[in-house]
C-alpha cells in the first residue's frame, strides 16, 4: 500500500478553490468588491508566477473568516461548494482516485488552500485524509491568522513529514500529482512524481526529468 498524494487546485478540480472562494465572497457582498477582487487577482498571478508571499496572502485570505460569524460562514461554504466547486470536480480525477483506491493506496490531498475551504472538497472526493493550511481558531470562530506552517512549497514537505510521524505510512513508493511548479519540492521528493495539466514551468521540468505528464481535463 503506497501513499497517493494529490494537489487539489487545478489538479483534481478545474480551477483554484481559494481564488474562487474570494470571487464568491465578492459576489455575495461579504467583502468590498473593488478592493478584494483586485487583490485576489494579484495574489493569483503571484502564485502562478511563483512569486507569492504566502503570509501576506493568508493575512488577506483569512480575514473574512475572522470578520464573519462561523454559522454564516458555514452556510456560505455550503452554497459555495454546490454552486462553484461541484461543477468543476473533474470526472477523470474521480477515476484516478479510484484507480489508486483499487490498488489499496492511501489517498491524501495536500493543498496550500485553507482547510475551511477545502475540507468539503476532500469529503466529496472521498480521500482518506487532507493536509491543508490551517486557519487559527478560538472559541468564537476564526482569528484570521494561520496556525503552524502553511502547506505551500517547502511547507508541504514539512507538513507531510509532521503528518507521517503519526501515521503508519512512509514515502516509499509514493505518488504525487500536481499541476504547479510551486510543488516542485515535493515532486522532487517522491518516487513517482506526475505532472497533471501542468503550468509551463512544470511542463518543462517534467519533460527534462522524464516525469509522466497527464491530463484530467476532457
Amino acid at each position: 500500500m503506497a501513499l497517493a498524494i494529490f494537489d487539489l487546485d487545478n489538479t483534481l478540480i478545474a480551477g483554484d478553490s481559494d481564488h474562487a472562494w474570494g470571487d464568491f465572497l465578492v459576489e455575495q457582498n461579504i467583502v468590498n468588491k473593488d478592493e478584494y477582487q483586485q487583490a485576489n487577482d494579484k495574489f493569483l498571478k503571484d502564485y502562478q508566477s511563483g512569486q507569492l508571499n504566502i503570509f501576506e496572502y493568508l493575512d488577506f485570505a483569512l480575514k473574512p473568516l475572522a470578520e464573519n460569524k462561523l454559522e454564516d460562514l458555514i452556510k456560505l461554504r455550503n452554497t459555495f461548494f454546490e454552486q462553484k466547486i461541484a461543477p468543476i470536480l473533474l470526472p477523470k480525477g474521480f477515476d484516478l482516485l479510484e484507480m489508486h483506491r483499487q490498488k489499496g493506496d492511501f489517498l491524501l490531498i495536500i493543498t496550500a488552500t485553507n482547510r475551511f475551504v477545502t475540507e468539503l472538497i476532500a469529503d466529496a472526493l472521498q480521500v482518506d485524509d487532507l493536509i491543508a493550511t490551517e486557519p487559527e481558531r478560538n472559541k468564537s470562530g476564526f482569528t484570521g491568522k494561520v496556525e503552524g506552517t502553511p502547506s505551500f512549497k517547502e511547507g508541504k514537505i514539512k507538513r507531510l513529514n509532521h503528518w507521517l510521524e503519526s501515521q503508519p505510512h512512509s514515502l516509499e513508493g509514493a505518488y504525487f500529482y500536481s499541476d504547479s511548479h510551486n510543488d516542485l519540492p515535493l515532486l522532487e521528493l517522491v518516487q513517482h512524481p506526475v505532472a497533471v495539466d501542468p503550468d509551463d514551468i512544470l511542463r518543462q521540468v517534467s519533460a527534462s526529468k522524464q516525469w509522466p505528464i497527464m491530463s484530467l481535463r476532457n
Binding site: 461548494f81 454546490e82 461541484a86 461543477p87 470536480l89 470526472p91 474521480f94 468539503l120 469529503d123 466529496a124 472521498q126 476532457n218
Partner: peptide, 21 residues
C-alpha cells in the same frame, strides 16, 4: 450525455458531502 453526467457529478458530490456532515 456529457452534460447529463456533469450534472449528475454535481448532484452526487453534493450528496456525498452532506452525508459526511
Amino acid at each position: 450525455l456529457d452534460l447529463f453526467l456533469a450534472k449528475a457529478n454535481t448532484a452526487f458530490s453534493t450528496l456525498t458531502v452532506s452525508a459526511k456532515k
